[in-house]
């Protein structure tokens, strides 16, 4: 009898974990409400993309991430179920909308990407050269599968990165300076493209950082990019913007990248996250 109960326990836990996803709101519903509220041309620019959102291929990637998350892996043969994303070990509900944040165990402000890598190293024993960690981009990478799954547990919740620790404020404020800082061949800063309403690069409507209800879509990553046929991360967005700006490569998980992400997440504070999103 006792043994039977023990055997049933993990099953019961697994079932309750799956049932738990009801807290997150479907991204297409979140977007629909934002469009009705703002009528923002950035949010409405692609009717096709809005139409296919319920069939977002990112969900398949998230499903693969859910399996990876629970599977014992790596040299330590451990799952990621004890990984603390800021709300306690294994708590994924609403974790992503409160990142980046300060982690006492590393003494650093970390984003989803870097925190995930940290757990894969400490809990599972992976190293930088293992493919599980080394491959940072693409729907077929473990990192993107896991990020998409973890972030999907924050759909519809309001962005709320903590600003209580001095390091969190310092990184956010440095990120703000970097956002307005002009350099490179073309004198670009992030603010060149992202501080006005209804601006376009050619046909693409640009999001305005001063409009949280619009900006939330810009920072809702992971998102499936139709033009790439891959799910992409916040880190990938930083990379691509800086490339267009004629800047050199920024390293994945670097403090400069996290400062920028801290600032841009703070700018969306209070607006609901669209996760996983689908973009051009």
């Amino acid at each position: 009898m006792f043994k039977k109960t023990l055997r049933a326990l993990p099953i019961a836990l697994a079932v309750s974990a799956t049932a738990g996803l009801s807290m997150a709101e479907a991204p297409e519903d979140v977007l629909d409400k934002l469009i009705k509220k703002t009528n923002s041309p950035y949010l409405t620019q692609s009717p096709q993309n809005i139409m296919i959102m319920p069939d977002n291929p990112a969900w398949l990637v998230a499903d693969e991430g859910a399996i990876l998350f629970r599977t014992p892996r790596g040299p330590k043969n451990a799952s990621l179920e004890k990984c603390d994303f800021g709300k306690g070990p294994g708590v994924l509900e609403g974790a992503h909308v409160e990142l980046p944040r300060y982690f006492a165990d590393t003494g650093k402000v970390m984003d989803l990407d870097s925190r995930l890598v940290h757990c894969m190293k400490t809990l599972q024993g992976f190293t930088d050269n293992d493919p599980a960690i080394k491959k940072k981009h693409g729907s077929d990478s473990d990192i993107m599968k896991l990020q998409t799954y973890i972030a999907s547990k924050s759909g519809g919740m309001s962005w709320n990165p903590p600003m209580n620790h001095p390091m969190e404020k310092a990184m956010r404020n440095a990120g703000e300076v970097m956002f307005y800082r002009r350099s490179g061949t073309m004198d670009f800063s992030c603010s060149t493209c992202h501080t006005q309403d209804g601006k376009r690069i050619r046909a693409s409507v640009l999001p305005n950082i001063n409009r949280p209800d619009e900006w939330t879509k810009a920072i809702s990553w992971p998102a499936y990019r139709t033009s790439h046929d891959h799910v992409r991360s916040s880190q990938h967005r930083v990379l691509e913007c800086l490339w267009q700006m004629r800047y050199p490569d920024i390293r994945n998980g670097s403090d400069a990248s996290i400062a920028l992400i801290s600032f841009w997440t703070d700018a969306a504070r209070g607006a609901p996250a669209i996760l996983p999103d689908l973009k051009r």
Partner: peptide, 27 residues
């Protein structure tokens, strides 16, 4: 980064540090 206290720096000084000293960019 551990050698310096981010929280004690001005936003501008920290931004410059992050760009040029923290190993964030392929300089």
């Amino acid at each position: 980064a551990k050698a310096v206290d981010y929280a004690a720096m001005s936003p501008k000084a920290l931004a410059e540090y992050l760009i040029f000293e923290s190993g964030s960019y392929e300089l």
